[in-house]
Structure formats: C-alpha cells, structure tokens
C-alpha cells in the first residue's frame, strides 16, 4: 500500500493488524461504569470476580509471578497458584501528604485482599509495592500486586495473609513457624517553628550538633515507628520494616522559618512463635558460578516506591 492509498482511506486493511485481542467484559463504556460502581461500593466489578473465581475453579489458566524453580518447590508443599491480584488507589493529599500515604496504602491493601478473597485464596505472596510516575501535583498512585495462592485441602481464608516474600521464601518461613501476614505502615509529620531563632547553628564556624532540630527529628521518627507498631498489632507480633523514608524540609523566609519533618516506615508483619527453635539445618555452601550466583548478588528490591536512606546517602 502506498502512502497515497492511506490518504484516500482505502478499504484494504494492513495485513499486519492480526486478530483483535479478547476482553472478558463488554466495551469500554460498560467497563468504566462497572468500575465506578465497584469503587463506590467497595467491591469488585463482576468481570473481575468472574475471572478470579474461574481461575480458582481451574476453568481459566492460573497466573503467577513465580519462577520455574519456585513453581517446582511450591508443588512439594501442595501450593497452587491461582491468579495475580492487585489493588490500586490514586490518592490526592488534601491536608496532609503523610497521612495520605497511610490512607492510600491501606485502601490498596484492602482492594487487593478483596480480589484474593474472590479467588478463594489462603495467602497472597510475592506482594510488591509499586507506583507509576505521572508527576501529578499532590497525588500519587499506590499499587500492590501479588500472586494469590491456595494450599490444597485447606479452606479459603476470609482474610488472606499478605506476604511480601516470594512463594519459596514464604514456605521456608512457614516451616520455621513464621507467618508473614501483612503490610504495616507508620507515618508521622510535624512542624517545628523557629520562633525567630536561628536553629541552624550558633556561630557558624565551629563544629556542633544541632540539638533542637535533632530532637525534633528524632521525635518525628519515633512517632512514625510507634504508629507502625500500632498498625502491626492486629495482624502479628512483629514487623520487618524494609522501607524507611524521611524528609526534613525548611520553609519560610529569614527569621520566620519553619521546619517540616515527615517520616514513613513500611514493613512486613510477621506472626511468629517467639523463642521457638528453628527446625532447619543450615548448610554452608559455596556457589561455583562466576559472578552469576544468586547466592551472592543482592536481590534487587521489587518495591519501587520510596527512595530509602540506603539509596540516597553514602556513608
């Protein structure tokens, strides 16, 4: 077909278009309406529920984020992957950025769990926290994705546990009596007014710790951690906080400066029997592959949400 034919809009279709992709539920207007309804009433659109329950019943192929190795291992434990589940919440911060993050994640979590319930799952493993950079003012999207799994011969869990570890690690932890059960969030922000004082330094030429500012910052951080503990309370007895994000900002003009400290901590909640002996034997192994060994290299974090201290600050 020449470029001239394109202008004419001639009927001949380009041969490369191929067959159209199949959707489960109607056209886009219909879908939009379903979604709107569902979000409003805190439930799932019918076509999502349908897809998940079909997958659970084995009528649709299962979908899993697992690698083949993980799949092989999970078979040993009679675990069946069901479907990928997700929860998203685009959240606008009105009065507080910090509290917005807490609310955003909690909503996303609830939505993901809803999907898992629809799939009749016992747990969601390999849960990752993601965001998409759209650079929209004072809002952000909070997304969680994971794989819903079912353990054969076990009734579905009305509140599926949420594990931020892969299926393989999940089982290893279960054997050791540790159940990763959810995600906990602690966030806190506070303002500090300088009241006409200069908090930066008294006499800029000498070395000195800034105690007022330091104590303020410590308080903010402690409060966030306390919140994290509060949030953990309902689901487990410990929290492995993998993400720490803090910002100390200074705003305002000379002699009327204010400092904003905000801190977010996110962690995996675990439920474990304390002082319980770990039954595993551990063997020392040396991997013989050059530079490729999965035993040596750092696993890239699968969450992409916050720049943590580790990434920003050098020692």
């Amino acid at each position: 077909m020449s470029w001239f034919d394109r202008f004419k809009g001639s009927a001949s279709q380009p041969a490369s278009a191929g067959p159209a992709q199949q959707d489960f539920a109607g056209d886009s207007a219909q879908r939009a309406k379903e979604w709107e309804n569902a979000l409003q009433h805190h439930r799932l659109p019918a076509f999502v529920t349908h897809r998940l329950s079909e997958a659970a019943g084995g009528k649709l192929p299962w979908i899993a984020t697992m690698t083949p190795v993980e799949l092989a291992q999970t078979h040993r434990y009679r675990i069946r992957p069901l479907a990928m589940v997700s929860g998203t919440c685009w959240y606008h911060y009105g009065y507080s950025w910090t509290n917005g993050h807490t609310a955003g994640w909690h909503t996303a979590l609830r939505r993901m769990q809803q999907e898992a319930v629809a799939a009749g799952a016992n747990a969601i493993v390999d849960v990752r926290m993601r965001k998409i950079d759209m650079e929209l003012d004072s809002s952000m999207d909070f997304t969680l994705i994971g794989t819903a799994i079912r353990i054969e011969g076990m009734p579905p869990n009305p509140e599926p546990v949420v594990a931020t570890v892969s299926a393989l690690e999940f089982m290893r932890l279960l054997e050791a009596g540790i159940v990763p059960t959810g995600i906990a969030i602690g966030a806190h922000y506070e303002w500090l007014s300088s009241w006409q004082r200069n908090l930066d330094a008294q006499g800029g030429w000498s070395n000195q710790p800034l105690t007022t500012l330091g104590n303020f910052w410590e308080r903010v951080r402690k409060q966030a951690l306390r919140q994290l503990q509060q949030d953990t309370r309902t689901a487990g007895n410990g929290v492995l906080a993998h993400t720490h994000f803090g910002q100390l900002l200074k705003v305002g003009e000379q002699n009327n400066e204010r400092y904003l400290g905000r801190h977010i901590v996110i962690g995996t909640v675990v439920d474990s029997e304390r002082y319980h002996v770990v039954p595993h034997d551990i063997r020392h192994v040396v991997d013989m592959r050059d530079g490729l060994s999965p035993l040596c290299d750092q696993r890239p974090s699968s969450h992409n949400v916050y720049d943590t201290n580790q990434e920003e600050g050098s020692i």
Partner: peptide, 8 residues
C-alpha cells in the same frame, strides 16, 4: 510487638 529492619 517487635520492630526490625531485617529482611525475612
């Protein structure tokens, strides 16, 4: 409840 920054 304990808090920690351990990986699992």
């Amino acid at each position: 409840i304990f808090t920690s920054d351990f990986s699992v």
